[in-house]
Design a protein around this nucleic acid. Structure first.
Length: 192
DNA sequence: TGCCTGATGTTCT
DNA sequence: GAACATCAGGCAC
């Protein structure tokens, strides 16, 4: 397995640095013979020092991927009906990842609409929504994001002034950490 | 606008 | 047996 430059970069970053770095970057998903393209507009950081993280209790069959190579996808199932996905970051053996909380359609939005039966910001303004829109489920767990049918495309790092920092959403522990990041003014950012 | 709840599977205690 | 990195729909205000 050859490692792309950007995967080496993600390996060198902390969860917080990576969560910021991924804002403005893009995902290209092949769906129904079309290329669906989206921009990442909201992320959260999780790592093994953090009681809210799945990696906090060590490596298990479920969290295996989080302790693996940077630039792969960690997908988990939650609340009995939803999937959420993260980009694994940091050194192998250290459990860290950035949760993708919201994306903005760039190309072939119609494919996402068909999958979601919704339109506008409701397409992908939440972690489980974007997984449904892009057909990401447990089969994609561990997927190498340098490969088809789901690729990460890096973009220039955003200016500090364009990034809003807040507490994370939907967790009960370690709420005080300011580990949620989103692009200022973007309408696809999730509520609350 | 905002609270409440149902849906529903996997992991952990 | 409880908690959960969630969402959508219903109903009160």
């Amino acid at each position: 397995m050859t490692m792309k430059d950007w995967q080496s970069e993600l390996e060198s970053l902390s969860a917080v640095e990576a969560a910021r770095r991924l804002l403005g970057c893009e995902l290209e998903r092949e769906l129904d013979g079309h290329k669906v393209r989206v921009r990442i507009v909201e992320t959260e950081a999780y790592d093994q020092t953090d009681a809210a993280s799945h990696s906090f209790n060590g490596q298990t069959p479920r969290t295996d991927v989080m302790f693996g190579h940077a630039g792969h996808l960690y997908v988990y199932f939650t609340y009995g009906m939803h999937y959420c996905c993260n980009v694994v970051v940091g050194e192998p053996g250290y459990g860290a990842a950035a949760l993708l909380r919201a994306v903005e359609p760039i190309e072939n939005e119609a494919i996402m609409q068909r999958r979601r039966q919704k339109s506008g910001t409701e397409l992908s303004n939440g972690p489980a929504k974007l997984c449904q829109a892009l057909d990401i489920d447990k089969r994609m767990n561990g997927h190498d994001l340098s490969q088809s049918p789901l690729q990460l495309i890096m973009r220039p790092t955003l200016a500090q002034a364009d990034i809003v920092v807040t507490q994370r959403i939907g967790i009960s522990r370690e709420k005080e950490r300011l580990w949620r990041f989103y692009i200022r003014g973007n309408s696809y950012v999730s509520k609350k």
